[in-house]
């Protein structure tokens, strides 16, 4: 039973990281119908930025964290401007390919800059543990869960309580109509990319104590976050987080209770099973084109 709870907590923590990356997928998808295959690599880059600020320049953890988030938000805007905006409105396949290309580029360039070693960021919660009876929970895992909850609340407030958030939701429903309504669609899209890069950075920094940062971490985790987003329905922000947590828990349970090898494929098997039964994901809406 103790084992179970411990596995559950580390699964949820890992799942939160997946969920945060998946959140980035969903944000961008909702606003622009672009599936950003480079989302995981944005996370990786954010992690490296934070490592540079904290590990190499020796800044305070929180300042470094904030710096990395700000830098990545700018980088997200830049990536959107250079790679995505010119092809907005073209078939999805083109855009997917463009972001795959962006991912390749980011991976290899950060490999060139930071090398191919693993890096770790020391955090204020790296050492501590929480004891409840005989249950021992690591602070870094709990911090991931708490941070995810905070981030989701902030995002929810932003989208539902601010004008800008409302404008974003409008332009995600129908870009052309929003444009005619006077919503500055281009700026909205650019801000969405900034937000999703910032969220990815949070994931990257939170991840750093749990896993190492290296140039392929974005690809590896991105490929887990992707099923998370699909599981959640790809259009739903809470869905993304729930999907992420599900994937994380499945993975950690499979790793603990099943034979070796199941851990890596279990999320995909579950995903395929869900898609078979509910092709639009758990929380997705099935919309048909009207003829």
């Amino acid at each position: 039973m103790l084992d179970f709870v411990q596995q559950l907590v580390s699964g949820v923590a890992l799942g939160c990281v997946y969920g945060l990356i998946a959140l980035g997928f969903v944000l961008v998808y909702k606003a622009t119908e672009v599936v950003n295959f480079a989302q995981g690599d944005l996370m990786m880059l954010g992690g490296f930025f934070a490592f540079t600020f904290i590990g190499m320049m020796g800044l305070n953890y929180w300042i470094g964290f904030a710096g990395a988030v700000a830098a990545m938000a700018l980088f997200g805007m830049l990536a959107e401007r250079v790679v995505v905006r010119p092809i907005l409105g073209y078939p999805q396949f083109s855009i997917i390919m463009a972001t795959i290309g962006l991912g390749y580029f980011l991976r290899s360039v950060s490999g060139m800059i930071w090398g191919t070693d693993d890096f770790k960021i020391d955090t204020p919660f790296s050492q501590g543990v929480l004891r409840i009876g005989s249950l021992v929970l690591a602070d870094d895992k709990l911090s991931v869960i708490a941070a995810t909850a905070i981030l989701c609340t902030l995002l929810w407030l932003f989208f539902n309580k601010t004008t800008l958030g409302t404008a974003m939701r409008a332009s995600s429903e129908n870009m052309l109509a929003a444009y005619y309504m006077g919503i500055p669609v281009k700026r909205v899209v650019s801000i969405v990319w900034a937000i999703s890069a910032a969220v990815a950075t949070c994931a990257g920094v939170l991840l750093a104590p749990i896993t190492f940062i290296h140039s392929n971490v974005g690809l590896v985790l991105g490929l887990k976050a992707f099923p998370a987003a699909v599981l959640g329905g790809f259009g739903s922000i809470p869905g993304a987080v729930v999907g992420g947590v599900l994937i994380g828990v499945i993975e950690s349970m499979a790793g603990f209770y099943l034979a070796e090898g199941w851990k890596d494929v279990a999320p995909y098997i579950v995903l395929l099973a869900v898609l078979l039964l509910k092709p639009e994901g758990l929380f997705g809406l099935h919309v048909r084109k009207k003829v």
Partner: peptide, 22 residues
């Protein structure tokens, strides 16, 4: 002889083709 050169070239080629030579 940089390690990731191949990946970078892939990335640039893909992006350039999508942007300019669909």
């Amino acid at each position: 002889s940089l390690n990731g050169l191949k990946g970078a070239i892939y990335g640039i080629i893909i992006v350039l083709f999508v942007l300019f030579e669909p």
